[in-house]
Design a protein around this nucleic acid. Structure first.
Length: 231
DNA sequence: ACGTATCGCTACAAGTTCGA
DNA sequence: TCGAACTTGTAGCGATACGT
């Protein structure tokens, strides 16, 4: 069983649910990591989010606090950073090329310094980088498979789970699409019965638009899942 | 009040499907 | 194979929300 924090990037959660199925992925509120499988506790960060976490922008706890918790609470902690494209954010309107370059250099330096002292500060945590979100999902799937189902460890894992999600995983997938509410997701499932039916070749934008509240834009976004999951 | 962003709706052109 | 019907992508327009 792979436990996933319910505040994690919904794109990653959806990809995992589609790859592994809802019987192997449990979305719940986690205390100190983003993902848990067996004795592995995994903190995942998109590269730009890593920078913001280091700086403490827009959050109450910095990454140092998070990693200390992670290190203390599980036997095999990991920090996985995915993505390579730094996107500098500059305040006050349209940024100049110069201000972007300055911010980019600052981001690189901050991340570099963080990595340079990482093992000094968190000797127990394994640090790794992957280039894309898809590669990170693949890493999770492969390692989950390698670990086996690890059912005997479930009790340990579930200590970390505070609040289990009550939403049907199919509704979670649909309602994570921009603009789709849980009610609309329920209506879609009532109409089409399953996600494979919604995404099958015969389903058109027009047929999805028969469902109350589904506009052409939303129908297009739903059918775009075919591309994401290569259906 | 104004500018901007976003969204839904519509029209139209281009591509696809399907039956004769 | 051909043409009608259907589907889809795109552009334009108006309504609305939001920040200044």
């Amino acid at each position: 069983m792979l436990l996933v924090d319910d505040r994690e990037n919904p794109k990653v959660v959806n990809k995992l649910l589609m790859r592994m199925g809802s019987d192997k992925v449990n979305v719940c509120r986690m205390k100190s990591s983003d993902y848990t499988m067996g004795e592995w506790g995994i903190e995942a960060k998109e590269i730009n989010d890593l920078y913001r976490s280091i700086m403490g922008f827009g959050r109450t706890r910095t990454i140092v606090d998070q990693l200390r918790d992670l290190q203390d609470s599980c036997e095999h902690p990991f920090l996985v950073v995915y993505g390579t494209q730094l996107k500098p954010y500059v305040h006050n309107g349209r940024p100049s090329a110069r201000s972007l370059a300055v911010e980019m250099a600052r981001m690189k330096k901050v991340i570099q310094q963080f990595k340079a002292t990482f093992y000094q500060r968190f000797p127990k945590i394994k640090y790794m980088e992957v280039t894309t979100m898809d590669e990170f999902v693949e890493w999770l799937v492969v390692n989950h498979t390698q670990q086996g189902l690890a059912l005997h460890r479930l009790a340990t894992e579930e200590k970390n789970a505070v609040k289990k999600s009550k939403l049907d995983s199919r509704i979670q997938i649909l309602s994570s699409i921009e603009g789709i509410t849980t009610t609309q997701a329920e209506d879609l499932l009532n109409e089409f019965e399953s996600i494979p039916n919604i995404l099958r070749k015969g389903t058109t934008q027009k047929s999805l638009m028969q469902v109350s509240g589904i506009t052409r834009r939303k129908a297009r976004a739903i059918l775009a899942l075919r591309e994401d999951y290569e259906l």
